[in-house]
Design a protein around this nucleic acid. Structure first.
Length: 476
RNA sequence: GGCGGCAUAGCCAAGUGGUAAGGCGACGGUCUGCAAAAUCGUUAUUCACCGGUUCAAAUCCGGUUGCCGCCUCCA
């Protein structure tokens, strides 16, 4: 099935065809490493992780490049505040980034270039832009002359006149025009610097992405991604730089993800609702976070709340419980009973992913599959070996693409049960004893006592379930 | 002030021309000592509002209202 992807400048879904058949070059704007990553970063990283996984699964030879901005005003500020060299800050947060990504099961990109390691390419690109008359040097800094690039604004659907009318751009005397942006910044005393033809200085923010993407993927990228907020000015400026320098279409398909809000408010440090990945992964299973973030379409905004995460956890548990039912079903059926269901699922799941990476729809199909399996087992618990194999194949596709359902069902269910027992102030052993006492009461037909025991546990957040194979408990 | 996006049930959320996916919640049935889980059924004659195009509109066009984002660092 053909893959359709929404393209930001055309505002339409279009059939995706890479420049070179079978090969895809994808560049995603990574993070500026000056602080811990938050749930918004998690969303972006997970979405592009899923896109990369899916494209590979579809058989494309993908080269995925995701950069680190490791030199920047914010990094310098932080370094000054803490009295440390800037690279100590950037290195620390790169390390923390990797820790978080590993927890979230976000795979590494093929190339993860850092701006500071590509100063040569950056300087070459700036030189080219000056030679072409698209950039000018002023007081040791170099600026891109926006008026010389006719396509400026095509990504973000803005006209240059409108932007000037906006007049909320800062006034910098070195610039010819407020819309012009820095390619190279002369360094102030005490700031880090690199030698260049213009000054001891450092690259502007936008230039690194143009320089590094071309270095690793060539002048035309099949896919370029990042958060919505990067559309303007960052990506608009990248287009100006790259198309200005190389005269070729820079990006065939722009992909931008929506924001995460918290209880319907934008995340910000001043509001104090800044949720770091580190805090979240302490409390929630990574698959719960992934499922939550993937349960809305990537372009839509998504609101983080206790309720929403609770729902995601419930869904995940439902999936695992069904898988566990299948695993513990007698393998005595002669004929496969899940085949049609699974074939249908495989097709629909693929179709959903091909449709602009519609993970929300894909997850709905997992729910349908779960219902179908439960229904089949309810009617008759026997399962054929063939069914197990087909199901495993479908589940491993889900795992490979979405990065969920990778755990052994029993293990996941048990871990879920045990999580939070400490806070409740009860041990596994104590619960088992209570269950034993209740069983005795039940045998003696003392249902009043049995119910008392069950209710007292429920009050603590432990629910009991009587199953054919005995009583089990779980955390509410 | 400029530009852009969004508005689907109690809540979350798919659906971009062919007659409203999925989840949570709620209610009723099966199962159970009773529950829980699972399952079955019910839960939007209707997609913010007003016009228009069309045989046909949640989907396209125009307008109104509301919310959000970007224009300064930002996933």
């Amino acid at each position: 099935m053909a893959i359709e992807i929404y393209n930001t400048p055309t505002k339409k879904k279009q059939i995706f065809t890479p420049l070179n058949e079978g090969k895809i070059g994808m560049y995603v704007c990574g993070v500026t490493v000056y602080d811990m990553c938050h749930i918004g970063h998690a969303r972006s990283m997970i979405i592009f992780d899923v896109i990369a996984r899916f494209l590979r699964k579809k058989g494309f030879q993908l080269t995925y490049v995701r950069n680190f901005t490791d030199i920047d005003d914010k990094i310098i500020n932080k370094a000054n505040q803490e009295g440390k060299p800037f690279n100590e800050i950037s290195e620390l947060y790169i390390k923390e980034f990797y820790t978080d990504m590993e927890t979230l099961k976000v795979k590494r990109a093929d190339k993860e270039p850092k701006a500071t390691e590509h100063i040569t390419q950056i300087i070459d690109l700036v030189k080219t832009l000056i030679e072409k008359g698209l950039a000018y040097e002023s007081s040791g800094s170099v600026y891109f002359d926006v008026s010389k690039f006719k396509g400026y604004g095509k990504l973000s659907s803005r006209k240059q006149e409108d932007m000037i009318a906006g007049a909320r751009v800062d006034i910098n005397e070195a610039k010819d025009d407020p819309l012009d942006f820095a390619l190279w910044k002369i360094s102030k005393p005490g700031e880090p610097w690199w030698e260049s033809p213009w000054s001891k200085g450092r690259p502007g923010w936008h230039i690194e992405c143009s320089a590094m993407s071309t270095h690793y993927l060539g002048p035309t990228l099949d896919i370029h991604g990042g958060g919505r907020d990067l559309i303007f000015p960052h990506h608009e400026n990248e287009i100006a730089q790259s198309e200005g320098a190389y005269g070729k279409e820079f990006v065939r398909n722009w992909v931008h993800n929506g924001f995460v809000t918290i209880d319907n408010e934008k995340m910000s440090k001043s509001l104090g609702n800044f949720l770091t990945i580190r805090e979240l992964t302490k409390e929630h299973h990574p698959e719960t976070l992934r499922l939550f973030l993937l349960s809305s379409h990537y372009r839509s905004p998504i609101d983080f709340s206790k309720d929403a995460i609770h729902t995601a956890r419930g869904s995940l548990l439902r999936f695992y419980e069904t898988l566990d039912r299948v695993a513990s079903a007698p393998k005595t059926a002669k004929e496969p009973r899940l085949k049609t269901l699974l074939n249908e699922f495989d097709e629909k799941f693929d179709a959903a992913m091909c449709d602009d990476f519609n993970t929300a729809k894909a997850i709905a199909h997992i729910h349908d599959l779960t219902t179908g399996i439960n229904r089949t087992i309810d009617a008759n618990p026997e399962i054929a070996d063939d069914d197990i194999q087909s199901l495993n194949a479908s589940i491993s596709t889900i795992s490979e693409i979405l990065g969920i359902l990778e755990e052994a069902p029993k293990k996941f269910i048990d871990a879920h049960k045990r999580s939070g027992l400490v806070e409740i102030g009860i041990t596994d052993k104590e619960i088992k004893e209570m269950i034993g006492k209740r069983l005795e009461a039940k045998k003696a037909k003392d249902f009043k006592k049995a119910d008392e025991i069950r209710n007292s546990l429920l009050a603590k957040g432990i629910a009991l379930k009587d199953t054919p194979s005995g009583t089990v408990w779980e955390k509410v």
